[in-house]
Structures are given as C-alpha cells and as structure tokens.
Design a protein around this nucleic acid. Structure first.
Lengths: 224, 224, 224, 224
DNA sequence: TATGAATGAGAGTTCATTCAT
DNA sequence: CATGAATGAACTCTCATTCAT
C-alpha cells in the first residue's frame, strides 16, 4: 500500500529482502515467551500471534504449523547452546575446565533469559512424539554427544574416572545441570529471580557437583 | 495383604467388600500404561477406558476428571518410591550407602515397570499447571527433601562435601538418576529393554556418578 | 432399623402394605424441593435421590423415568390446587367471591409451601415438550377452564363484564396471580419470606387487581 | 475506509464495512427461531449453527458460549420492547392510553414475530440461573419499573386506583398480557396463527382486562 | 505480505437409564 | 424392595488450520 506512493525513488537499499522478516522474528520471540509461560499444550497459536502483535494467519505464513513453529523455537535456542559448547570445546583448557564453562554458561543464560532456559529444560525432552522423533531429539542427542566427547577427553587427560561410560558421564553432568536449573525455575532451590550472588553461589555448587560425578577421586578439582 | 494374618481360616474366598473396586484398579492400571505410551496430552480418556475394558463413563464414576485420574496415577507411583526412600532412610547403613540403595531401587523398578518410570521421570515435572501446583509438586518437593536429609546426614558423617547445599546435593543426585533413566527410556544409553547385565552395569555407573556429585574428594566410595 | 427390635408385638396395623410406600413419598417430596431449587433441567435424578436419602436406583423402581417423576410432582401439586378450586366453586358465594377465595388460597399456599408454588408458577407452563404435551398441559387447561366457568357464572350473575371471553377472563385472573406470585418468588415485589402483614397486603392487592380485570365497571367489588 | 465519504453515488452496493457481520446476524436470527421451537434446553448449539447455515465453530467465534448467545437473543428482543415502551411513555396520551398502546404493541408483535414473543413470554423467566441472575433479570425488572411508572402517573391523573401499589399494578398488567399471550402461543385461546380479526378481538379483550386491573371503578375506560 | 472470519474434527464431561446383586 | 456400579449417547467447548480478500 505504502509502496504505491514512492516505489523506490531514492534508490534506498532494497528493504530487507534478504534479511529475516521482522514479523517472523516477532513471532518466534513471542512463541518462546508464551511457550515458556504456558508450556507446549497450554499455549495456543492465537496466544503467540497476539503476543507478537500480529494477525492470526500470519503465523501460518511463516510456519507450516504449530509444531514447526515450536520446533523452530527449540532449534534456535539449542543452536545458541550448542554453539557455546562447540566454542568452549574448541578453546583452551582441560576437559574439566571446559565442562565447568559449559555449566556456567547455561546458568548465566538462565539469568538473562529464564524463559529460554525454562523451555529448554522443562519442555524439550517431554513434548509430543512428533517432536520427540524430529529434529529436537537429534539435537538433544547431539548435545549429549558433545559433552560425552569432553568427558572422553577428560578421561584421556587422566582427570576423569576411566571406567565411566562417557555417555553416562555426559548424561550425569547434564542431569545435574538440568535438575538444578529445574529447581531454580520452579523456585525450589532459589528465588524465581535470583540475585547475582545467589546465582554465583549456584554456579559454584552446580559445577562442583557435576564435576564430582565424573572426576576421578584423587583428581584436582581444577574446573572450579 | 492383611489376608496373610488370619482372616479367613476357613478358606472362604476373601470377600474384599471393603477393598478397592476391581475396576477402579483396572482404570488406574490402564491409565498408567496409556499415559506412559502417549504422554499426558496424547492420551484420551477414551483410550484409558477401552484399555481398561471399561465403559467410558465409569472413569468419571471413580475420578472427577482426567486431571484427577492422572494425578492419582502419579501419586500412587510416587508413593511407592517415597515408601522405598523412607524405608531405606530408616534402615541401616551410611548416608552414601542409603543413597546408593535408593538409586538401585529406582533402576530396578525400571526393569520391572518401565512404564511407571517413564511416567514418573518424563511426565511428572512437565504437566499442566493444575498438577504442577497440586499434590504432584508437593510430592516432588517431598522426595527432594527426603534425599536432602540423607545428604545432610552424609555431611555430618563426614563423607559428603560439607560446603554443599543439601538441596543442591539432592537435586544433583536425582538429576543424575533422572537423566540417565531418561537416556534409558529413550534408548539413548541402553537398549529399550536392557538385559540383566546391562542394567547392572548402569546401576554401577549411575551410583558412582551420583555419589561422586556429593562425596568429599577423599572419602571412601562406600556406597558402591 | 429400630423396627427389628419389636416387629409387631403390639399387633399394630400391618405396616402400610396398601398405603403408599414411605420411600416413594420421600422421593416425591425431595423431587419437589430439588425441582423448586434448581429448576427442571438443573436438577438431576441423583440430586433427588440423595435429597430423599435413598439409593439411586430406587427412583427408577417407583417412577419410569425423570419425566414421569416430575410429572407426578406437578400433578400432585395441581391436584391440591384443583381440589381447592372445585371445593370453592361448589361452595357458597358469588363468582367474584369465589375467585377471590381461589386467589387467597393460592397466596396462602405460598406462605406454607413456597417451593410448591415456585414449581407450579415458574416451571410448569414452560417445560419440555414431553410435559407440555402430557398431562401437565391438560391439567393447566383444566384449571383455566374451571376459572373460566366461574367467570361465566359471574357474567350470568351480572357482576362481570358480559362481553368478556370467559377464557380470556380466566387467563387474565390467573395471569395477575401468576405474575404477582412470580414477583414474590423472585423477590421483586416482596421479601423472599414475606411477613404475615406483607402477605395480607398482597392478598388484598392481588384480589382487587384480578377482580378489576373481570368486573363490570359499576359492579360492587364484593369479592374483596 | 476513506471511501465511505460519498458511498454510492455510483450506485455501488453499500460496503457495510463497519456494520454487524452478516453471519453474526444469521446466528442470532437462527437462535431465536430454534430457541422458540425447542426451548432453551431442547436446542443445541449445533441446531443453531445448521439453521443459520454456518459452521459449528463460528457460533463460538461470535459468542462466548451458549448462554451468552441466548442472552443476546433475549436482550435484543427485549430491547425492542423496551424501546417501544419508552417511546410510548414519552409520547402523548393518558397513562391508561399509553398502557393500552403498550399492550397493543406486544400483541401486534405476536402477529409479526410469534417466535420472538414465544421466547420472551415462555422462556424468559424460567431459564438457567446464569441468566436469571444476569442481564435478563435486570431487563425484566426494568420493564416492570417502566410500567409501574405509568401506573403511578395514572394514579396522579386520577384514573387509576390510588391505593394500588404501582409495582403490583405493573405486575398485574404484565400478567394479563403474559398469560393471554401464553394462551395464544399454546393455542389455548386462539388458533396458533390467528387471523387479523381474531387478533383485533384479542387486543380489545386484553386491553380491557388489563386496564380493569388498575382503573378506578368509576373512571372512564379511555384506553380502549 | 497480511488479515481474521470461517471451518470442523476432536476431546472432556454429564447424566439418564440399566442391571446384577 | 433396595443398592449403586456400570453404560454410553449426547452435548458443549476448543483450537489448529484454511482461505477469501
């Protein structure tokens, strides 16, 4: 409509043709928020649309259906987490130190974006079979494998218990993280909006506990 | 159960007039199964009824609504788990040994009743707010507290790291258990129906990892 | 229950074999009450049974179904009202005086049994077609005809307007009664539980208004 | 939108963009009809939808639920009646003449829209508590009050019996109307589809009877 | 792109009625 | 007579998805 006025007289750069449309972003953002608040089944497409300040049907313009929308939310969040894991994994430091970094990163994100964490932690692994079988499951397996590789490296470095199955080690580390985050999200372990100090304390505690699950008894707890 | 005493020495068929109606049991049993297979939102009341071989309306004779039915399933399963934790907690052994027992018990149950575990592990903390706020949440908190008490005792006994927040310790132990069970349930860590040996191996690994999360570095790993 | 003690030592009259069973009465009574409170569609058979302190199925022992039960309630209440109209009609007094008596009787009953009146007034003429076509409709027509006969007689006696269709006259008299009772039942015209004086005042007002609808302009208002 | 300025100089079909959606109207219209035929509890939302030639869900697009739909039907019909009463009340004529006009209006509407009258007369005061407590009850009270004001004016004008409680007078006038309409609706007083003459005769009879309920004995029956 | 009216299958819940005991 | 567990049809309401504009 506005186009008819002055098509492109000024030769402005073509308005965002390549970039992700603004409204698509708004929908994704709204979906994350609504999803975190109400859970997978509690949120309706209409909620997402109105939260995004967008018309009902537009959601279906950008996403095939509700599942795909939410899977996109998942993937995007995980992508960030996986990116962090990969970056840390390729950086310096012992396996123990790297695992500690991963844990600290996750807890930091909780501070910044509790909604995202809530979605990742509470909703991801227990959503409908459509998702469970889809890319989300693969993503979850990928995270496990990435951590398992860190564990295996830690074993080679002599810090971690050698007889531990690296996958079990990874599951244990992530389990410690998950359950403590769940405790934070639900207010069981901290205030729902923990203070900076409270968060630091939790970081320390969670890192210690998680590393304890994999470290060899005598190893120096260097990841602290 | 009370039958064993000397109820009907004359060999009469136990009247069971007072006992829980047979069909109510059937419904609960069916609900557990269907729920485990399809998840909370994937299972319909009709599924439960037909799985139980019972008329639709009978479900509503015994349970106010779907939520209450599933909450009953939860509660019943948790009751068993909590009973075990309590029994172990009141029995002999160091805190580490007791925690190991709790973990082994949970893994044993997985062998016997994977459906029940699946429900407890995958569905519990992520169900509708009705439940999240209701007895299920309280039950979950209770479990955490029971384990936290064990952790605190282990600290007094000198085996566990003294600076660890017992609640974080409990969350960590349960997190290790949860995530590994989840890995088993989803087939990531073991075959969906693990063999006896596979299970034994997992028990050992999980116990070691979970205790590692709380044991003091130098402590003898007595819970093994 | 207490009966078991001394069954019939005193040679009491055989316990009500011919008479209406006690529980049948209880059910009818409960039905009237519940029906008055909640209306035809708001009351369930279960409500009636529990109000009567009687088992569910027993209702179906005495009544074919819900409709028949409620039709019985109607009929019984109307029978009382019709009986009164007949008695008055066959007694002494001018038509105007008799109509006044009928109105006063109805208002007196409201004092004693507001529930019954509520059922007759608010529920009767507007219930499902099953009833509308059944005996209730006939009963209602009968009442109208009985009053219409009084009106016709009043016309012959010279008190009532001669050009008035007696059926319209009856409908008008009953309409004045009905709407004022409705106003009392709903608390629009009086307190829900009117005092003796309030009731007397209403009687006077309603009688005057109702007779006004049928009396010839110059006639002495003898029905007062 | 800017288009509306000079809408159809060119003979374009009026756009009606702002107007009430056509289908909403269709639903309301269908609801009135179905409701009149089958009564509040006898009609299902599905009936209304199919009568309106509209998809099931659309009913819930425009109305929160069945109750709200039917309340809308009520309100709309009453609004017409109340509008007429107000217009008459603010117009010329004695109180008696005005009341006569109100009655004639109601009887005329019966000719045009018996369904509407049926709903207003037979269903209104006996619908679920939701409605009884809601706007419908208030509306009914409003009508009573409007008529009561007319009655009070008639008393000041010296035509109506001065000792009559205006509310009772209003209830009586409306009672006469209601019961006679009920008699017409149910076929007790006239043919279900009365002829023009039959209707005129009823108008005369009802007006005479209703005014008789409130007129002072000697007053000239000017409302005729 | 963008809108939101329109669709309709699906699920939960109620409750009159039956029936074995 | 009396009980209440058992049945299942009927109905309301939800919400993902489509489509005309």
């Amino acid at each position: 409509m506005a186009r008819q006025r002055n098509p492109q007289e000024e030769g402005q750069p073509a308005p965002l043709h390549e970039a992700e449309p603004e409204k698509r972003r708004a929908i994704l953002h709204a979906a994350l928020k609504v999803f975190a608040q109400r859970g997978y089944h509690g949120c309706r497409v209409a909620d997402v649309a109105s939260e995004a300040g967008v018309a009902y049907g537009l959601v279906y313009h950008y996403f095939r259906n509700k599942d795909e929308l939410l899977e996109s939310v998942f993937d995007e969040q995980w992508k960030i987490f996986i990116g962090a894991i990969r970056a840390i994994s390729e950086g310096p430091g012992s396996a123990a130190e790297q695992i500690a970094s991963v844990l600290r990163f996750a807890l930091d994100v909780f501070r910044t974006a509790p909604a995202a964490v809530r979605v990742l932690i509470l909703e991801v692994p227990r959503t409908p079979d459509v998702l469970r079988a889809g890319s989300t499951r693969q993503t979850f397996e990928l995270v496990t494998r990435l951590v398992a590789e860190m564990v295996a490296r830690g074993q080679r470095e002599g810090d971690f218990r050698p007889e531990l199955d690296p996958l079990v080690g990874a599951a244990s580390v992530l389990g410690v993280l998950d359950m403590n985050l769940a405790g934070m999200v639900t207010g069981l372990l901290t205030a729902p909006q923990p203070s900076e100090e409270e968060l630091e304390r939790m970081k320390h505690q969670v890192v210690t506990a998680a590393l304890g699950a994999v470290l060899a008894p005598g190893a120096s707890r260097s990841g602290r």
